[in-house]
Amino acid sequence: MKDCYLGIDIGSISTKGVIIDDHQKIIKSLYIWTEGNPKEATKRLITKLKESLEANYVIKGVGTTGSARKLIGLMLDACVVKNEITAHAIGTLSRYPSVRTILEIGGQDSKMILLNRGIITDYSMNTLCAAGTGSFLSSQAKRLGIDIQDFGKLALQSNNPVKIAARCTVFAESDLIHKAQVGYQKKDIIAGLCKSIVLNYLNNVGKGKKIVGPIVFQGGVSKNEGVVKYFEEVLKQKIIVDPDSHLMGALGIAILAKNNKRKQAYHLDLQEVSFDTVGMECNQCPNNCEILKIYKNKKLIDAWGSRCGREFTK
């Protein structure tokens, strides 16, 4: 029997799962859409991963990260539940130990992590707006009637990208429509969008940060060749994009699960376990905290969201 470790990154748009062996090598990986239902997505992900996993492997650790990490961590009884920033840094460091800057653009958020000698020294995350993230790109691709997978290739064909005001998603969209109606070519508009994402990211997330190479670019948007090209153009440096760049968070959390001391065999028979969440308003004081109750096999196991620490029993 061989040990292996599962890392799951449940993002807003996509759910990523990675199984690594003792040498931190990815044996199985999967990338599926979350579709607004992290629980179902995780169930699908785990069923598929387990089917493809050879019988001589035993899962000895589970880690979760991403915006639904807490919920899924509880559902799977994960041994590590960690934020995305740490997970991404650990994942990237395992492949590029000398990395100094990690650029990450995901579905709803974007972050920048600065490292020095394998230690995180600074990080930042987009705060208010999703402008320049993956979901914006995919909604614009839909508007222009192109498949998101061809987006990058089309952008590479253009020689003079259109200027697009990308400070805010809403403004960017109206500017984009305007440019299309005026008669600009589609490929130039797409290239302009890619460039605007780069500029917006650097002005927003990268504000005041010193970007030093080697630079690694990851997250779903790193699969877009157009964005990579404009990053290289603006930063005047080579950008490394790993073939598994979309899985780095999941890889990082799998490594953390592997390093965890609590080792136990996970069976992950999710079909037999019922897992429900019920949202309610507390109404006991004017705070009206939104409480989320979590039931496993019809039994309350946790309740989140109370500010006063009120205990819930039912």
Binding site: K82, I85, T86, I120, T121, T127
Partner: peptide
Amino acid sequence: EVGIKTRCEAFYDMIEMR
């Protein structure tokens, strides 16, 4: 609130690693 929690957690991880 979630955004604050994520950043706090990452900040803790960072200083602990250092």
